[in-house]
Design a binder for these strands. Structure first.
Length: 991
RNA sequence: GGGGCCUUAGCUCAAUUGGCAGAGCACCGCCUUUGCAAGGCGGGGGUUAGGAGUUCGAUUCUCCUAGGCUCCA
């Protein structure tokens, strides 16, 4: 549809062309879209990137066109139905622009609310940095939560945003229904104590019913339904006022139409807007009857009341009206786009469908062959194609926002999503690396809305392709193991692969169960899936039980929230001072908020102002002392469990501390200085690495400890030793230039203009802190630093190593620690030079020479020892006794003979007997005060029923063993050696 | 955070109930030779991740530490 719509739009003249293109022609190329938060920026963001499609290479475009044409010819019924559907939903006036691109839906949404006084706020990054309980932003309002909860004052009273979101709880439903996608975008308008129900309803009604020519969505008023909360008569009145007839306004209960965050705080009724997609999608009668036909497109939440505690979703007390009533709305962008494009589900909109087409092209599958009305009844291949499209897009956006595949947390979610996509490709028969084919398609679909995806694609694809390679090697390993298991099962006549085996493959080797099923089926085996599920459930139970067990030991977040609510953000004054007067705002014990703590107790102290730096940005926390009233606490750790809340984890070392008392906080200055030096050094190492390795060498993590730093960064391979030397040298030159280190707060735009480096995964507010070292390095940073680069004294890089694919780590020392390290090494070289009696420069050569001489000498010695031991072999064989037809040699090896030589002697003597003459050779040896025994016998002796193992065990009463030909043992006192030989001889004799 | 598995030569991997640590590739030398991963002979290269224990004896069994893979939270 994208293409069809595009063509049509061009033919239709200016209808689809954004007005801003004419208004601000010059801005397009200058501003970087995607990072705008001001109204001014909107124009550039939305209008600035049209023309690039003309410059696209022809190959892929043609291919895609061809694919589309085939596709459309194949399923004319759906095409016709789809178009018809669009026409019936939209007002006649909108027909010419029937298929509206997703980016255009987004643009219109923002423009409508901007025109109505809303500030356009850019999407927050997907990783939800501020909330430890939330992996990803999963709703449009997440970045506004502190405003809704009254923790922060919003800088605007009206806002509008299109927020990137990820939801994974029902990941298994992806592709099976039309509604579940792991990545989606949420349009939302927000009011913070400004307008309420009436205007919210009017604004949303205006946007969806406004004709397309006028910038709206042009939806036929007849097709619109609304739901309201049971007793929300107000809202019914407002809906009637805009023109919606009473028969299309439905009252619904608490489960559907009442909102709360699950914790005490704001709550209130909702009003949802539905669009009737027509009889082809289901029965008549409104959303109560059929939610497939009547599709929810927009939820308006009216934050009207305050609620109390309660675990249940519907069971909690309403405490009263909120003083400031807020509006929070959400319109699924993809859902809206699917309606505007007349497609059945969100996988078929312009931002997703090209991925399905590409996957079809690669796998030779055809999408939606047996066309169905709802996604739920789809062919398994269709489900897989949708999974691929959704997951590839999600992966692209996640990596784009700085998430990288790993074994835990966010990275693990990403990894699972990526592997599911790759797996789905395999199940469709495509076994080559799939992401290099698919990811660029996702980039082309998404970059119109998110240009940074295109500019950053090198980094994104590097991670993605590396992850696919890693997965391919686990698949290879798993396939081998599975093949063996299948063969074993078949050999033993089984028809079923055990649940144990399937689980082991999944659990230990990461081999997906669906591939196990597939491969087993090919081999005619079934799999015990019940057993597999049981084992999975057990594992889940274990992990959950563990998580529960340790949660009780923690002060949970509510105590922190209480402390934060009690006085707002804690002021940090440590940039400017190292000690100050303060007051204890709250004390937190193991069970929550407490009022006092006595000597010896561990307690978490919240001050209203503090010079203590909380661990963050790789910088370790300050330690120190807080004196309060008659008490004194030693600070052991400082953390920031919630944004703005600085918590000192401390032990009361003297007296007692009480909440509310005034006190004096003092940090360990020496430690702070050493940490600050390390932090400044980290910036210099970062900048210098980039100077030598290029701009892609970005920071991936760091540790700033007293006198020591660790710096992780992205780079494809090992850093050559010569580069490390150069980096080290340049950093030290910067130290000698004694540059001033300056920190200042500025707008994000200004920081970007200055070229300050910013990190992925960090969420920055409108104002950011920039730290610069002269003109040499400039970085966004909240840490503490030395005043001048000269204060660092010396930076010494110790090592460079790999810590993961594409990530390297350097360790370095700073200041006196670096000096002490060098001094120590100097002493070491002095000592070596002295021991070898050579000039220092020659120590290396001399060591090399010595090692090689020593090795030669050892080899020579070994050879001579062997000769000594083996020399007598012939004579020993000559002197063999005959014990009832068995040749027997019993001898003691020279004192101190090595085990290897003794064994060789035994074998050597044995070899001197003809093959048909039974022979037993026993050699005893003494070493380290212990006697040992080795017995070697030949095949002829074995066929007489003799066994070397038995002989050794017999002589040593079990303390030895080996096999029938050769056995050894020992451990008895050295003077027992003759007895051992005697025992063997006796055993042979009396056999 | 909890569970399973892995770590052996520069690389990829072998090594039977615990009993002489190997192969292929790479490297070095010599020879042969000029055709797509050339061949032949010879050679160097190992604290079997580190530490402790059990044992006559540990790459192998047990425990601890470090790193990696993987599943579940």
């Amino acid at each position: 549809m994208a293409r069809g719509g595009h063509r049509r739009r061009r033919r239709g003249g200016a209808v689809g062309d954004p007005p801003g293109a004419q208004v601000h022609p010059g801005r397009a190329g200058r501003d970087r879209p995607g990072i705008h938060w001001s109204r001014r920026g909107l124009g550039a963001k939305l209008y600035g990137r049209r023309p690039r499609r003309h410059g696209r290479p022809r190959g892929p475009a043609l291919r895609r066109l061809r694919g589309r044409r085939v596709d459309r010819a194949r399923r004319p019924a759906l095409g016709a139905r789809g178009r018809q559907q669009v026409l019936s939903v939209q007002a006649a006036a909108g027909r010419r622009a029937a298929a509206m691109r997703t980016a255009e839906v987004k643009r219109r949404f923002l423009a409508h609310f901007e025109a109505n006084g809303h500030t356009v706020v850019p999407s927050a990054p997907l990783p939800a940095i501020d909330d430890p309980n939330l992996l990803f932003v999963n709703a449009g309002m997440v970045q506004f939560v502190p405003y809704f909860l009254g923790q922060q004052t919003p800088p605007f009273r009206r806002a509008v945003s299109v927020q990137k979101c990820i939801r994974t709880p029902d990941i298994d439903e992806v592709g099976k229904t039309s509604r579940h996608g792991t990545f989606f975008q949420m349009n939302g308008n927000f009011s913070f104590g400004d307008y309420f129900k009436e205007e919210a309803i009017r604004l949303s009604w205006d946007l969806i019913t406004k004709p397309i020519e006028a910038g709206g969505f042009g939806i036929d008023q007849e097709k619109i339904w609304a739901t309201v909360y049971l007793d929300d008569d107000e809202s019914i009145g407002f809906w009637r006022a805009v023109g919606l007839p009473a028969e299309r306004i439905v009252r619904r209960g608490k489960a559907d139409n009442f909102w709360s965050m699950g914790i005490p705080g704001p709550c209130g009724p909702c009003s949802e807007i539905y669009v009737d997609r027509g009889p082809a999608y289901g029965r008549e009668g409104g959303p109560e009857v059929d939610e497939d036909r009547y599709m929810e497109i927009w939820n308006n939440v009216f934050m009207q009341y305050e609620r109390g505690p309660g675990t249940d979703k519907e069971n909690y007390p309403i405490l009263g009206e909120l003083p400031a009533q807020n509006i929070d709305t959400g319109m699924g962008l993809e859902r809206m786009a699917s309606i505007m494009q007349g497609v059945d589900n969100l996988y078929e909109i312009d931002e997703v469908r090209p991925l399905i087409d590409k996957a079809c092209e690669l796998t030779g599958k055809r999408y939606n062959v047996s066309h169905t009305t709802t996604a739920a009844e789809s062919h398994p291949d269709d489900v897989r194609l949708r999974v691929i499209a959704d997951h590839v897009r999600t992966s692209l956006m996640l990596i784009g926002d700085g998430v990288t595949p790993s074994n835990e947390g966010r990275g693990y979610v990403l990894r699972r999503i990526m592997r599911r996509a790759i797996r789905a490709m395999r199940l469709l028969g495509y076994e080559d690396p799939a992401l290099p084919e698919l990811l660029p398609v996702a980039r082309d679909s998404m970059s119109p809305s998110y240009p940074e995806i295109a500019t950053d694609f090198g980094r994104i694809s590097q991670y993605a392709y590396a992850e696919e390679e890693a997965f391919r090697s686990t698949l290879r390993a798993g396939t081998t193991i599975l093949d063996v298991a299948v063969a074993d099962t078949k050999k033993s006549g089984g028809k079923t692969l055990t649940g144990d085996k399937a689980f082991q493959l999944h659990d230990t080797y990461g081999f997906p169960i669906d591939l196990t099923l597939e491969i087993a089926a090919e081999q005619g085996l079934s799999v015990d899936t019940d057993g597999f599920k049981r084992l999975m459930a057990e594992q889940r139970k274990r992990a959950k039980a563990d998580a529960q067990a340790r949660k009780t030991g923690h002060a949970d977040l509510s105590a922190y929230r209480g402390a934060l609510d009690a006085g707002g953000a804690v002021e940090f004054t440590g940039y400017a001072e190292v000690s100050r007067e303060s007051k204890v705002r709250a004390l937190i014990g193991s069970g929550g908020l407490i009022t006092s703590a006595g000597e010896g107790e561990l307690v978490e102290v919240v001050l209203d102002v503090t010079p203590f730096y909380a661990e963050g940005g790789g910088q370790l926390p300050d330690l120190g002392l807080i004196t309060v009233g008659g008490g004194k606490v030693e600070v052991l750790d400082v953390q920031q469990p919630l944004p703005g809340l600085i918590v000192h984890k401390a032990r009361v070392v003297e007296g007692e501390v009480r909440s509310g008392e005034a006190g004096y906080a003092q940090i360990d200055v020496e430690r702070r200085r050493a940490i600050s030096r390390a932090h400044t050094a980290t910036h210099l190492v970062h900048q210098t690495m980039r100077n030598f390795l290029g701009g892609s060498a970005t920071q991936a993590g760091s540790l700033n400890a007293p006198g020591r730093l660790r710096f992780d960064f992205n780079t494809p391979g090992a850093v050559p030793a010569s580069v490390l030397t150069d980096v080290e040298q340049q950093v030290n030159e910067v130290l000698m230039s004694d540059l001033e280190v300056r920190a200042f707060v500025t707008s994000q735009a200004e920081a970007k203009r200055l070229g300050a480096m910013a990190l992925f995964g960090e969420k920055y507010g409108e104002y950011v802190r920039v730290v610069e070292v002269g003109e040499y390095a400039r970085e966004l940073c909240g840490g503490t630093h030395a005043a001048r680069s000269g204060q660092l004294g010396l930076v010494k890089i110790l090592s460079e190593a790999s810590i993961g694919s594409g990530v390297r780590r350097v360790d370095a020392l700073v200041g006196m620690d670096a000096f002490r390290h060098l001094a120590k090494e100097h002493l070491l070289v002095s000592r070596l030079a002295e021991l070898y009696r050579v000039p220092r420069e020659e120590v290396g050569d001399r060591v090399e020479q010595t090692v090689s001489q020593l090795r030669d000498a050892e080899r020579e010695l070994e050879k001579m020892r062997a000769q000594l031991v083996l020399g007598g072999a012939a004579a020993l064989a000559e002197g063999a006794l005959d014990l009832g037809g068995v040749a027997y040699v019993g001898t003691e090896a020279p004192e101190g003979a090595a085990v290897n030589d003794v064994r060789t002697l035994a074998q050597e003597v044995r070899g001197r007997f003809p093959a048909d003459r039974p022979a037993v050779v026993a050699v005893a040896a003494r070493a380290n005060g212990k006697a040992s025994l080795i017995v070697a016998i030949n095949d002829a002796a074995k066929s007489r029923g003799l066994s070397a193992q038995d002989l050794v065990k017999g002589a040593l009463s079990g303390r030895g063993g080996g096999n029938a030909d050769l056995a050894q043992g020992g451990g008895v006192p050295a003077d027992q050696a003759p007895h051992l030989l005697g025992a063997v001889q006796a055993a042979v004799q009396t056999r």
